[in-house]
Amino acid sequence: MPVLPGAEPYRHEGGDVGVLLCHGFTGSPQSLRPWAEYLAARDLTVSLPLLPGHGTRWEDMQITGWQDWYAEVDRALRELGERCGKVFVFGLSMGGTLALRLAAKHGHAVSGVAVVNPGNKVHGLSAYALPLARHLVRTTNGLRSDIALAGSEEVGYDRVPLHAAHSLRNFFRLVDGELPQVTQPLLLMRSPQDHVVPPADSARILGRVSSTDIREVVLEQSYHVATLDHDAERIFEESHAFIGRLAPNVGKKGSTTGG
């Protein structure tokens, strides 16, 4: 199945410090591509994989679940670990949740975590209906391009497969129980006006992780997909400063590959 234009995975061979970026549920690498390119231009080795079932059509996502999405970022992290002396994991929305689980599971192999509007729970009455509804209805309306910046669009699905949504709900519950295992430095960036993930999710995450080195940044001018919004440059700069503080030995530039 052809990948949607802009949704291709991205890879840049840079120096000895690596960054893994994880995109969100029903989204694609396009939402994080500017962030990845910013880091790549600053001598970092960057990996931005396309999660299974994403970036093509929603029917492909219907047959995937959290185990598939996590396996892909876990593989990408191990690959970066073989290549780099230090590795950081970043993520948007569910990608932030994936990043937090990687930190919980891989310990010292992850040097730091930066997340933007991370998810922790499927909210509303619909969450309780998912176990049954997914057998009766295939999809529901998606919420794509929750972006304040005029003209900025997210490449992703406008339908949400309910089987995948049910798996996401289970994944959030699993990771919530694992958050105390997260001990790495944490940079959490959140939008007060987020129409997808409420501020309560960030508050829950901050209250449950065991990290002692925590920085919280409020993205006042952006909605959920803040990496494509007014505060994008601030996200890029904050995350690069975060890496620079923890890994000052950023290596030399390499070559870029996409797709």
Rank of each mutant, 00 (worst) to 15 (best):
G119F: 00
D229A: 01
Y70W: 13
W66Y: 12
L188M: 09
I243V: 13
A127N: 14
E13W: 14
L44D: 09
R144T: 04
V113P: 14
C22F: 05
G95V: 02
N141Q: 14
V250D: 14
G207V: 02
K252H: 15
V73S: 03
E72K: 06
Q221C: 04
T183S: 12
P49E: 01
R75N: 08
S111W: 01
L4N: 04
G14P: 14
Q30K: 09
G254A: 01
V218S: 15
G207I: 01
R134T: 10
V225M: 03
V115R: 03
L77N: 10
S255M: 04
L188A: 11
V87R: 02
T140H: 04
E82P: 13
G81A: 10
A41K: 12
K252F: 12
R204S: 08
I243A: 02
E220V: 12
R215V: 09
A226N: 07
V113M: 01
E82L: 13
A247S: 10
G112K: 05
T212L: 06
G156Q: 04
H166F: 13
G259T: 06
F242I: 14
G81W: 02
W69A: 05
A104I: 03
G124W: 06
L39K: 06
C84T: 10
D201T: 13
K105D: 08
E216R: 11
V110D: 09
L188V: 14
P29G: 01
K86F: 02
S145M: 03
P5E: 01
G53K: 01
P2G: 00
S167H: 11
